[in-house]
Design a protein around this nucleic acid. Structure first.
Lengths: 214, 214
DNA sequence: GTTAACTTACTATCGAGTAAGTAAGTAATG
DNA sequence: CATTACTTACTTACTCGATAGTAAGTTAAC
């Protein structure tokens, strides 16, 4: 009866406003999941914020899990500070970029909170965001490691094996500082602390420390 | 009729086994909240693990929130690696202690996960554990800062203002590395990375870096 | 006139907390 | 030491309120 290759002939063609509406929903979801967590946040709250019913949201995204996954990838796109989507600065510029990101993030508590809460929550059993964060960290560690290699090459230094440790550490400080900063913004200077720590770690890779703890 | 100061004459005296039972419940709660989060974990699951009904647990702890609070303080007591309860090593010994803690933690994924999940979740709105973690980080930053001051004094170095940044950073790397390690244990060496980062930061406080990013 | 973009209304389930009851322990008293 | 008086430590059974997902109907765009 129908064409066997129906998909080819017809692409359902969604309405132009739909895309904007999806963005609104995703933005609301970032805020709700960020402030309540994924398990704690509800479709109802998200729906309220965009003036819709929760069923309307399910119409667009199918399920709560699916919504989270799209929130996570959407965040990467809109996140000005994100590395993956932009043209990646190489070498030392990457580290400067990370520091700048930390300073920028100090004015975007909402998104920072979403990221902190969801990444930590993702380590729980069967969390729908787990794979996303696994891949994300793997990618980011790779970017940072590459930057280290470039910098070492530039300075004629043999790239030490500490690069892997340092790459993970740099991402770790940034994340860890965000937690402390969210809990008590006055007690921690997110930008300056990130800058300090990143410099310390980069420095330590370039000129291996004298092992002060030995 | 009855004695007016009844409370004075009799202290209800709970049964001796009760204390052990409470410990069991707390241990189960650490495991459940650690693997599912606080919002995601249920009293039923905890009850199942200790062979009880969820009402039995409420009998002991009153509410789920209260249970979490007791889990958090209980954890500090049983956590071999914790600083507050033990006699705190001063100066450089503290940093060595932190490194050792990281190596030990690499064999205790369960507790690490509980800590990671709950601390991050605590930044969400009205989370019952929020105050606990605020105080905890404040205390820990203080301990680390004091260690830095001692070390600086020992070496006749004027204590720089970077101490506060460094203190927050050291705790931050440790936490952040735990997240990455939990997501992908093979990709991150929790002990060695913590050691590397802590050394780098301590080193940077003692001999201020040459600002490689400037 | 067909389909996208919803809404309303419903279902099924689950979760924390409560109420009431029961068995066993503990303690004061004669 | 035994009896009475009370408490602890639960269980069973319930309430009440969410919540994710579904189904069917409505409107308006293309």
């Amino acid at each position: 009866m129908t064409e066997s290759t129906a998909a080819q002939r017809r692409q359902p063609r969604s309405r132009p406003e739909t895309l904007a509406k999806r963005r609104d929903i995703l933005d609301a979801a970032v805020e709700i999941f960020g402030s309540k967590g994924f398990a704690g946040g509800t479709l109802q709250e998200i729906a309220d914020q965009v003036g819709m019913t929760h069923a309307g949201i399910l119409h667009h995204f199918g399920s709560k899990d699916q919504l989270l996954l799209e929130v996570l990838s959407h965040r990467d796109e809109t996140d000005v500070a994100d590395l993956e989507e932009q043209h990646i600065p190489g070498g030392i510029a990457l580290f400067r970029h990370l520091v700048r990101t930390a300073f920028v993030n100090a004015h975007r508590a909402g998104i920072v909170q979403a990221y902190v809460v969801l990444s930590a929550e993702s380590v729980t059993d069967d969390h729908p965001g787990r794979v996303f964060f696994q891949k994300r960290y793997e990618t980011l560690r790779g970017e940072v490691a590459r930057a280290f290699e470039v910098v070492c090459a530039e300075r004629g230094v043999a790239a030490p094996e500490t690069i892997e440790l340092a790459s993970a550490s740099i991402l770790a400080v940034m994340d860890g500082l965000q937690v402390q900063w969210l809990l008590d913004p006055d007690a921690v200077d997110l930008g300056r602390a990130s800058e300090f720590a990143i410099e310390a770690i980069v420095d330590s890779v370039l000129s291996p420390s004298t092992s002060p703890l030995a």
